[in-house]
Design a protein around this nucleic acid. Sequence first.
RNA 1: GGAGAGGUGGCUGAGUGGUUGAAAGCGGCGGUCUCGAAAACCGUUAUGGGGGCAACUCCAUCCAGGGUUCGAAUCCCUGCUUCUCCGCCA
Length: 424
Amino acid sequence: MLDIKLIRDNPALVLEKLKLRNEDTAVIGKIQEIDSKRLDVIKKADALKELRNKVSDEIAVMKKDKQDASERIAEMKKVSDEVKQLDVELRDIETEVEKLLYYIPALPADGIPYGKSADENVERIVWGEKKNFDFKVKDHIELSKKLDILDFERGAKISGSGFPLYKGKGAGIERALINFMLDTHITKGYREVMPPILVNRASMEAAEKVPKFEDDMYRINEDDLFAIPTAEVPIINIHRDEILKEEELPMKYCGFTNCFRREAGSYGKDTKGFLRVHQFNKVELVNFCTPETSYDEMEKMLVDACAILQALKIHYRVIELCTGDIGFSASKCYDIEVWSYAENKWLEASSVSNCTDFQSRRAKIRYKKTLENGKTKTELVHILNGSGLATSRLMVAMLEANQTKEGNIIVPEVLRKYTGFDII
RNA sequence: GGAGAGGUGGCUGAGUGGUUGAAAGCGGCGGUCUCGAAAACCGUUAUGGGGGCAACUCCAUCCAGGGUUCGAAUCCCUGCUUCUCCGCCA
């Protein structure tokens, strides 16, 4: 969530930044209005509470001295009733502000390319080259069907469309990929975690997925639990409501989980096979760091994610998302896209985001900062997340790029010690 | 799922209605002492929200949310959670 104080103190900046995202800014004026009402009520209530506290102490003394305090008690009863009323009013005002605030996205960082939609994203890096095949390339569905390593029909029978079933060496190479990615990230200083994949509402809120994206989540109503859309959610919540030590930062985690997305409203677009699924596997990177270092850390995270693709020798590019396309919680975002020979286009396989203090404010994740004069100050950490990487679209690119004329798949060299086989 | 006992500051742990935002100890930080260190001693050590240029000051917070009361860490209700025992179970 945005800082209400920023809206209070520098609304012009907030408006300017939100316009870059093509957001409706009328809501800011509304928030300002409610906020000033909120401050009024707080002042009134606090003054009355102060009075009540003072007189209550006096009553205590009077009682001890065996004096009659009934008059003062009667007075305070009135004050107390008034306080109660104001507290109710305050609570209502606060939920009103939150209802608006929870739907306002993060402000884009300075220097982000301006644009209205994904079409205006900017290509930053292209790695590798397209291979030349002297035969007609098959797509991942055809390949995997022939080799019987992926079974989308039976996955659909078990759960519904978009729930892939991995079989034989398909399952093996998926498992190898995950292990390879984790092992690689661990050597770069990420601590591996294996978190719960059903999380409570508080965790979803802290990660800024709810209420805004509630319809995109699988939810277990009975217990009000959500299936995570990404490991980012449980990993961020490791430190919810905590104050970290400055010397512990940057604190880096990696973790593999299944990810679940309802993809409500996206039917019909890129849905075949692995291109868009409800359940997929992903190794996630999360970094808690100081505000001063977050953009540098972001570049490092991008390098760490790209290192996986380089090791696998997959042709990819990095694009920087324009203001109109960056995600709700992010101030800056890079997407890594892998080349699909069969689709003849780039597929998003990773997204590296700097969410600055947008999530940490809601999740209350802070750190103790030591100032130059030796005093300490509690400050929100910056949180970065990145896929390192999601396997499904990566599999599309990998299967296609490594196919032979006969329809077999050559296993990338770095994976062989994990798979135990070198061809499918 | 059943029975019972708990949840207090970074940690241990006192506190059962009135200067308790909270004793004491440990830890942390600063200082005295020392060539230096340890020990000892002294001081300091929560978070959020108002107000103030500032010194500072007010409000809230003892798992969470309600309630009783002039006044709640302390009493009542609900939820969450931890531990022990039983049941079920990978």
